[in-house]
């Protein structure tokens, strides 16, 4: 075994021997399943006529302006669920500082850059697993409910499967962004506050505000959540633009590159300011 594969094995063992990953995965599954199930029942009910648009308060045009329902529901996996892989990556990294396990980690492998690289790759893989779990919730539950209202869940559509594949990729990258944030901030409490405040409050506000002028809209596309939605290819946000004009996002691959750039920036800066510092 090469020293890198040993380092990678150790990072997987760290994740596998604590409860963190499956607790987060379970909460994520429940949260997305609830949203995807509830909203697909509402929208599919309207679309199929089972629920009257007036009763739902969405106006008489129904979903005509919203495009296709299934991709919107399926994209909840990442547009709603991305906070979970970020938390996973962040907690897995800040936990090393908090529990002082950096000491035995660096004793067993003093090549610190290699350890951080291995951690990033391990979290990328587990983040992809989170993507699969999130899709089981959004596509699994969503498609069942949509189908129950006799609306086509579009599961035979190749575009749906492209969205599914890109969602897995987005979730994997989000998990590594969590690692980058973790090394950058290294305080567990601070990083949780930052993740929750940014993903649940600051970024949605910024994205919404950026939609009001063309200049800010261009900038807003480079916010991490917007880049993630571009990568995945559908999001509630792209539909909720003021005035009903859907915001034009980046190309999917551009979105992916922007996300990767955030991850690399956080990880490289974090390496310099905390990972390679004294462990006392």
């Amino acid at each position: 075994m090469t020293s890198f594969s040993r380092a990678l094995g150790a990072e997987f063992a760290k994740l596998g021997t604590t409860r963190l990953w499956w607790v987060l995965a379970a909460v994520m599954f429940g949260y997305i399943a609830l949203l995807a199930g509830g909203l697909s029942a509402l929208f599919a009910g309207i679309e199929s006529g089972a629920i009257s648009p007036d009763a739902a308060g969405t106006g008489s045009q129904g979903l005509a302006g919203f495009g296709s329902l299934p991709p919107l529901i399926y994209s909840f996996a990442s547009s709603v669920g991305y906070v979970f892989p970020v938390l996973l990556g962040t907690l897995a990294t800040t936990g090393e500082f908090r529990h002082q396990t950096l000491t035995p980690t660096f004793l067993a492998n003093p090549r610190r850059a290699q350890v951080l690289g291995a951690k990033t790759i391990a979290l990328f893989v587990v983040g992809a697993v989170f993507g699969v779990v999130a899709l089981l919730a959004s596509v699994g539950v969503g498609a069942l409910v949509i189908n129950a209202f006799d609306v086509d869940p579009l599961l035979a559509d190749s575009a749906t499967w492209a969205l599914i594949g890109r969602t897995v990729l987005a979730m994997a990258i989000w998990s590594t962004i969590g690692v980058g944030l973790g090394v950058l901030v290294h305080s567990q409490v601070a990083s949780i506050v930052i993740v929750l405040a940014f993903t649940q409050f600051v970024e949605p506000l910024l994205r919404f505000a950026s939609l009001f002028t063309d200049v800010t809209r261009g900038i807003g596309n480079y916010l991490p959540g917007a880049a993630s939605d571009a990568l995945v290819g559908a999001s509630f946000f792209t539909l909720a633009a003021p005035g009903g004009t859907p915001a034009a996002l980046l190309e999917w691959w551009q979105g992916g590159l922007v996300l990767l750039a955030y991850m690399l920036a956080a990880t490289v800066i974090g390496y310099a300011v905390s990972w390679k510092r004294d462990v006392t």
Binding site: T17, T18, H99, L102, P104, N109
Partner: peptide, 21 residues
Amino acid sequence: ASFHPGRSARNHLAVYAIAAG
């Protein structure tokens, strides 16, 4: 004390045994 409290003693050692081959 450099331990993750949620890990068992055996798993704690296993992580570093893997890292060191």
